[in-house]
Computed example of a mutant assay.
Amino acid sequence: MKKWISCLFSIVLLLSVSLGASATENIIRLATTTSTYNSGLLDKLLPVFEQKFGVKVHVIAVGTGKALRMGRDGDVDLVMTHAPAAEKAFIDQGHGIEAKSVMYNDFVVVGPASDPAKIKGSMDVEQALRAIAASKSQFISRGDDSGTHKKELALWKAADAAPTFDGYKQIGQGMGKVLQVSDELQGYTMTDRGTWLAYQARLNLELMVAGDKRLFNPYQVMLVNPERYKGLNTEGARSLAQWLVSAQGQKMVNDFRINGEVLFHGSAQQIVTAQ
């Protein structure tokens, strides 16, 4: 009897381990940016991938800084972010492998119709930031160590205009919320074009600055290094990364539109460098 019970227990244990492993293999944990998530792009892409491969992708939408920290801690299987310098450090330090360029868009500066800094139509983002600071206008910053926040701080530094004026506010929120707060306070902000297009119809803000090459915004995907952590679904993560840069994935990126406007451009054949 004891032998039979012991045998039964072993079978149950083996089944539990097997089912647990199977469940893990069918779930891919992706940390990505709020700008990617807010655009609605993943709602179009991931169901197609999930159906094709019979898996489920759990998306954790956070700022780039937090997404990379989750990768460093082994809490996700892969990350898709938009901060080339931080991504290079992530790879160089051995946290990530197999970086692939996926797509790009650009950042834009938006603001109230009254335009107190008189920057509407400018294609020089540094000059525009200096004008915002000089006029002490409201400027709402994400302040969350996201890719957008990193880029914004780099641009303030390049413009030699420290964001210490009275109207500058860091709120520690995602891009969608920052756009809403900017609208409420009638302030300026910098946003990726994808989130701007997704939210534009709900806001009274207007496009102020666009087209400056310094506003280029590339996205890439990286696997978390499986040599650093056990239990990662590396094969699932690899299949997702490869699908994103496949002909089908890139076509879906290029075809994604809101109100006829293109949000992202596939860049699988391009090399992303730190700027």
Rank of each mutant, 00 (worst) to 15 (best):
K2D: 02
K2N: 04
K2Y: 00
K3D: 00
W4N: 00
C7G: 00
V12N: 11
L13Q: 10
L15S: 10
G20K: 04
S22T: 10
R29M: 06
L30F: 08
S35A: 14
T36P: 08
T36F: 13
Y37N: 11
S39D: 01
L42H: 01
F49V: 11
F53H: 14
V55E: 07
K56M: 12
K56C: 15
K56A: 15
K56V: 13
V59C: 05
V59I: 15
G63I: 09
K66M: 09
K66S: 08
A67S: 06
A67G: 01
L68D: 04
R69M: 12
R72N: 09
R72W: 09
D73Q: 14
D73S: 13
D73K: 15
V76L: 03
V76K: 03
V79P: 02
T81D: 06
T81N: 13
A85E: 15
A86W: 14
E87G: 15
F90Q: 08
I97R: 08
A99K: 11
S101Y: 01
V102E: 00
M103Q: 05
N105S: 03
F107W: 04
V108G: 03
G111M: 04
D115C: 03
K118V: 12
K118D: 13
I119Y: 07
S122E: 14
S122T: 13
D124P: 12
V125N: 05
R130T: 03
I132L: 08
S135Q: 12
K136N: 14
K136C: 07
S137T: 10
Q138K: 15
F139A: 10
G143E: 05
D145W: 10
D145P: 07
G147R: 04
K151D: 04
L153H: 08
W156A: 12
K157V: 06
A158P: 01
D160M: 07
T164D: 14
F165M: 12
D166C: 13
Q170C: 09
Q170S: 14
Q170W: 11
Q173W: 05
Q173K: 11
M175W: 02
V178E: 01
V178K: 00
L185R: 00
M190E: 11
T195N: 02
L197T: 03
A198S: 04
A201G: 09
D212T: 09
D212R: 11
L215R: 05
F216G: 04
F216Y: 13
F216Q: 09
N217S: 09
Y219W: 02
P226D: 01
K230W: 05
G231C: 00
G231P: 00
N233P: 02
E235C: 01
S239N: 12
S239Q: 04
S239K: 09
Q242P: 04
L244N: 02
S246F: 11
M252E: 01
N254Q: 13
N254H: 07
I258E: 03
N259S: 02
E261H: 06
V262S: 11
F264W: 03
H265Q: 11
H265I: 06
G266S: 09
S267T: 09
Q269K: 07
Q269E: 07
I271S: 08
